[in-house]
């Protein structure tokens, strides 16, 4: 735990320093830029709550990827599942009219259903036809992208809008907000606790983890691999779908073109950098949200384009993951050397 933490912090510091060097070469002021970045994501109550709100889709798609990778299935379909979840929640929000106490849970369930349907499709392709989910989920991402684009351009199009988007959903389906504190965070925390409980405290979660580490051992031990596989796909799809639904319900309250574009691969990245750990996913999700929320401030104050953060994120992933692997090799080497010495004496 301690080495993991040190490794993560070190990786982030190295990546930020590399970013600072690039900025310095281009004639920007690195220190002021990073100050602006953290000020705009942590500096005030407003920016802090905005950062929390933005972290919700990151953490949920991250959890989706983490649980999937840790249990075996290479579910790379978070972007597509996110979009289908958002679409189903939007449809519910447009055509249903219930009091908020019913409406909100129903929309949340619809969002999870949308994501689970899309990941379930990939899961069934694997179970029935042995098609690798690693490629099918990627292709389904593109298909979902075009499908939702069509849905908001034609059948659900808001006739008063100039670009593809749906009308606003029924206000009863909006997530309540206190000041700038959006309740999507509460939904996320509940989902986080549920995921943590399932994977740490239930038999199913244990079986998934074992299957992820050693599928043959799990099968010989009597786990139903196929059934578990489908369950994991459905759960992880539901998580990504939930992320999509919450974005619609908390943010623009409608489905806009390019809704999920910002979160497309972030979930997978967060899971990788967190080494599929559940708590680590939460922490890295928060950190990535700090970067992304602060990027706007960075652009406003020091003119560094906010796209720079995308580069920094990728560098963080590479440095932290490479560092983790290399750290272990280094430790092994030291241990071997020490043993060799002892042998000599």
């Amino acid at each position: 735990m301690k080495t993991k933490f040190i490794n993560g912090v070190l990786g982030i510091v190295i990546a930020l320093m590399l970013g600072a060097i690039v900025m310095w070469i281009q004639g920007y002021a690195p220190f002021e830029t990073y100050t602006a970045l953290f000020n705009y994501s942590l500096g005030s109550f407003y920016s802090f709550t905005t950062m929390l709100r933005n972290s919700v889709p990151l953490i949920l798609t991250g959890l989706s990827a983490s649980v999937a990778f840790a249990s075996g299935p290479v579910n790379l379909g978070q972007p597509g599942q996110f979009l289908m979840g958002a679409l189903l929640a939007t449809i519910g929000g447009l055509y249903l009219d219930l009091p908020p106490i019913l409406m909100i849970p129903i929309l949340i369930l619809l969002a999870m259903l949308g994501g689970a349907l899309w990941s379930g499709l990939a899961g069934l392709m694997r179970l029935w036809f042995k098609m690798d989910e690693f490629i099918t989920t990627l292709m389904l991402n593109m298909i979902a992208d075009f499908f939702t684009y069509w849905a908001i351009s034609y059948p659900l199009f808001d006739k008063e809008a100039y670009s593809p988007m749906t009308p606003a959903i029924n206000p009863n389906g909006w997530l309540p907000e206190f000041g700038n504190f959006n309740t999507n965070i509460i939904v996320m925390i509940l989902a986080f606790i549920a995921v943590w409980f399932i994977s740490k405290k239930t038999v199913a979660g244990y079986e998934w983890r074992i299957a992820g580490q050693n599928s043959l051992f799990a099968r010989l031990g009597g786990c139903e691999i196929d059934k578990n596989y489908l369950k994991v796909m459905l759960l992880t799809g539901a998580l990504a779908g939930l992320a999509g639904g919450l974005v619609v319900m908390a943010g623009p309250h409608r489905f806009l073109k390019g809704l999920g574009a910002n979160y497309a691969w972030d979930g997978v990245m967060i899971a990788m950098v967190a080494n599929n750990g559940i708590l680590a996913t939460l922490l890295y999700g928060l950190f990535f949200s700090i970067l992304q929320t602060g990027a706007l401030g960075m652009e406003l104050i020091t003119d560094v384009p906010r796209e720079f953060i995308m580069v920094i994120q990728a560098v963080i992933v590479l440095v932290v993951v490479a560092g983790r692997g290399y750290f272990n090799i280094l430790m092994d080497k030291i241990a071997v050397r020490r043993k060799a010495k002892e042998g000599l004496e």
Partner: peptide
């Protein structure tokens, strides 16, 4: 994956 995202961002 990181390289693909690096390319996209860069």
């Amino acid at each position: 994956v990181a390289l693909n995202l690096f390319a996209l961002g860069a």
